[in-house]
Design a protein around this nucleic acid. Structure first.
Lengths: 152, 152
DNA sequence: GTAAACCTTGTAGCAACTACAGCTTCAAGC
DNA sequence: GCTTGAAGCTGTAGTTGCTACAAGGTTTAC
């Protein structure tokens, strides 16, 4: 059932999943995609299943799931009879991270807003922005930023 | 005026700015911190000015400013006579990024929340989470996620 | 039959650190 | 003055998730 219809080139696959051939090869290398069938000349050829799988991966990455999480999700979706507790756990964990990040980012926005509005446009000497960055004490929201790191 | 009071070791400096010695050496290497005075045996010794500078850097990084932005901010704060227009521009630009990111992250949270709540806890086969990730059509908020990339 | 467009592998680069390994120096106690 | 253990040194490699070459080989359309 999988011998026929392997006619999609890597470029077409990439286009259909909205990414680049390099990314596809990368996913193959790290084992997210299975090794593709090859033409006599050694080029990769894919079927529709690969399009679905890659689309899943890209979409999950878009959602902010780490590659390791995607790997787990794929493993689970490969076993449809299994209970989806673990799937739920991964998604819930991810949701928690997103929420915490959202809180910190939102505090950061307030601080930046405050900084920008308070800066009178004078000399650096009296610039609130530099002051706020220099002096943590001036922060309204303590322990609230720390914000540009990756989600798990 | 800067020959005296160079008595802080790299470890102490790192502790006082809440980072690691490796990070300090890294900042020196990329030119965010000036080369430190050395003891006869070659160890780095710092003064209070270094503590302030490193604290500024860490704080700005914490705020989500990229190292390149921090570099610009440092260059500006080193020249107190300069107008703070540029500082303001960087902060405003940053604010814009934070806001756009906040929107995307917030949409992402909704999607994840929806996924998690709709998951009935049955088999993977019928798992809403897997379904939503598989099928872009099922997304409520189009083009809204894509969320874990760095702020400029 | 040829040319363009595509594909191949392998390697190096990005950000912003972090983590060794293998050695040297410093500071404190005795 | 000596020992000992913590801390410091350099240099290099690893992290994450790709992206971008270089130097060739293959396909396909005309």
């Amino acid at each position: 059932m999988s011998m026929m219809g392997q006619s999609i080139s890597i470029g077409e696959l990439a286009r259909r999943a909205d990414c680049k051939p390099e990314t596809v090869r990368y996913y193959e290398r790290i084992g997210l995609l299975r090794d593709a069938t090859r033409t006599g000349g050694g080029q990769r050829r894919y079927g529709e299943d690969a399009v679905r799988r890659l689309t899943f991966i890209r979409h999950a990455r878009d959602f902010g799931f780490s590659v390791e999480s995607v790997r787990e999700l794929l493993a689970m979706s490969d076993q449809p009879d299994m209970s989806c507790q673990e799937v739920d756990a991964i998604a819930t964990h991810h949701l928690k991270k997103v929420e915490s990040r959202l809180r910190r980012l939102s505090a950061l926005r307030e601080e930046l807003q405050r900084m920008v509005t308070q800066c009178a446009g004078g000399k650096v000497e009296s610039c609130r922005i530099i002051e706020v960055i220099s002096d943590h004490q001036l922060c309204v929201t303590e322990n609230s930023h720390g914000g540009a790191h990756d989600l798990g």
